[in-house]
Amino acid sequence: MGRLILVVAACLFGGAVRGANSGGPAERRDALLKAALGGGVEEVGRGLSDENLVVRRTAARLLAEAGASAEGALATALGNTDSLVRRTALRALCRLRPERALDWARKGLGDEDPAVRRVAVDWLTGVEPRTDNVTALLVKARGDGDALIRDAASAALFPFQRENVSLRNRKDYDHDVRIAQAIPLPESGWEFRLDPGDEGHLKGWFSGGGPGWARIDVGKTWESQGHAYDGVAWYRLTFKLPSKPGKLTAVDLAFDGVDEAAWVWLNGEYIGSHDMGKAGWNKAFQLDITREIRWGGENVLVVRVFDSAAAGGIWRPVRVEVLE
């Protein structure tokens, strides 16, 4: 073990070396594979300092497979200059020592490389039962700059999930799509409720009804209507639609802008979300509502909005769009 640590240290502090075996990268890699077959953790560990990244990653993988005997080397590998080595090491360590995994995951979430952070969030999402510490880290990950990490954390924290792709964005639809009819929803007549505890979705606010809702308009921010607030808030609108058009292929609910993220229910059914993090505040989006829309009747639209800073709310128009 001591020699292994020395070798790893050489990698960390002395820069990459060619490795103990002579020859090209392929030969050095082959040597590692052979060494691993013989249980040569020490020799494999030397591969972590190889100048060739594939050789180095091979070493990390072989150490991960070696199990407990390679724990020290793997812990040190968390500081390797190659993110893939760090990723492999982090994952192996979380598996080897679950009792220490929270610390490693916390460290991993701070890694500069999203590949490493993803391993951390992947591990966190799988922890059962979920402790407050785990939840706190997932909440932090929900604000990550990397979409995959953000999505994974959000999915773990938010119980409503649905993939919703508008017909116009479907890559598997072999026809042109046009908007045959656009039905603007009113800008006034909406209801509004703050949700500072982020619990409305757990209390069923999406099902419509219930007290405590105030009037609000869309097409402008909630700040401009007297709500100096950042966090989660809910919008609700009851609206009627005419009878079903004769020809339609799909129906979208089109939002021109929600600052900054939105989760949408229609007639009590969860429709989908728009969550690109902060970058989503001015991005139009559409959600398919073909199955949930009620033509010739009353519809209840509920939108949960999250705004992390500055202005927030449904600040641009909303429409029902009939697609052909």
Binding site: R57, R61, T88, A115, R118
Partner: peptide
């Protein structure tokens, strides 16, 4: 970047 974590890639 999407790869199943159970697999350790040699190249990304």
């Amino acid at each position: 970047e999407f790869l199943c974590p159970a697999v350790c890639p040699d190249i990304v």
